[in-house]
Simulated scan of single mutants.
Amino acid sequence: MKHLTIATEAEKNADFRRVLWTGTYTQLVIMTIPPDGEIGAEVHPETDQILTFVSGVGEATVDGSKRKVAQGDLVCVPAGAKHNFVNTGPNPLVLYTVYGPPEHADGAVHKTKEEADQLEESGLDEPPA
């Protein structure tokens, strides 16, 4: 069993992305997006994603629809939907997200978006088979 106080774990996180738990069918990840930062437009062809916002403010774009997000909001992104999340506030945008199936390498820690992008492009951030 993995037991966490997820909002506390997310708030303590200074890394862009940190995988907290990977199961057979889902994965739990915390993220901290700095002011003026973003996740980056992406599509997960075979992965659903649920994002829950812990603190900060931002803008969610999913398949062209835009919506402001803040603490307590949850956004569901179906597989195949183009999406991006942008920090529009002066403080970090902190969130946790659940992927189904897993999207990243088990235990992955990406200090910055640039590091995350580099590891993804090089094939070093692949989910378990």
Rank of each mutant, 00 (worst) to 15 (best):
A79N: 00
G37F: 03
I6K: 06
V77G: 05
A60E: 11
T22Y: 05
K12Y: 01
V98R: 03
Y96P: 01
N87L: 08
V19I: 11
Q27A: 07
C76I: 13
W21K: 13
L74S: 12
T8E: 14
T26W: 10
G72Y: 02
V69P: 02
L124M: 12
D117R: 08
V94N: 03
K12H: 10
R67C: 09
D73S: 06
L51V: 14
P92M: 02
T47V: 14
E11I: 11
A108W: 04
A60Y: 00
V94I: 14
R18V: 03
A70L: 04
W21L: 15
T97G: 11
G23A: 15
L20I: 08
E46R: 02
Y96L: 03
P35A: 11
Y25V: 10
V77L: 04
N13L: 01
T22Q: 12
Q71C: 02
K2F: 13
A116V: 02
A129M: 07
T22F: 06
R18G: 09
P78G: 06
A129I: 06
C76D: 03
T5H: 13
D106L: 10
Q71W: 08
A129F: 02
V57L: 05
V75Y: 05
Q49N: 01
F53C: 04
V69Q: 02
T97S: 10
P34K: 07
P45C: 01
G123V: 12
T22D: 06
K66M: 12
L124A: 13
Y99M: 11
V77C: 05
A129L: 10
D48P: 08
L28I: 13
N87G: 06
G64D: 13
M1P: 14
Q118P: 06
G37Y: 05
L95T: 00
P128R: 12
V57Q: 03
V43E: 01
A60R: 05
G123I: 11
K113Q: 12
V69I: 15
V62S: 12
H104K: 07
A108D: 08
I6S: 07
D73M: 07
H83N: 09
K2Y: 12
E38G: 11
K12G: 09
T22S: 14
P127I: 00
L95S: 10
K66N: 10
V19K: 07
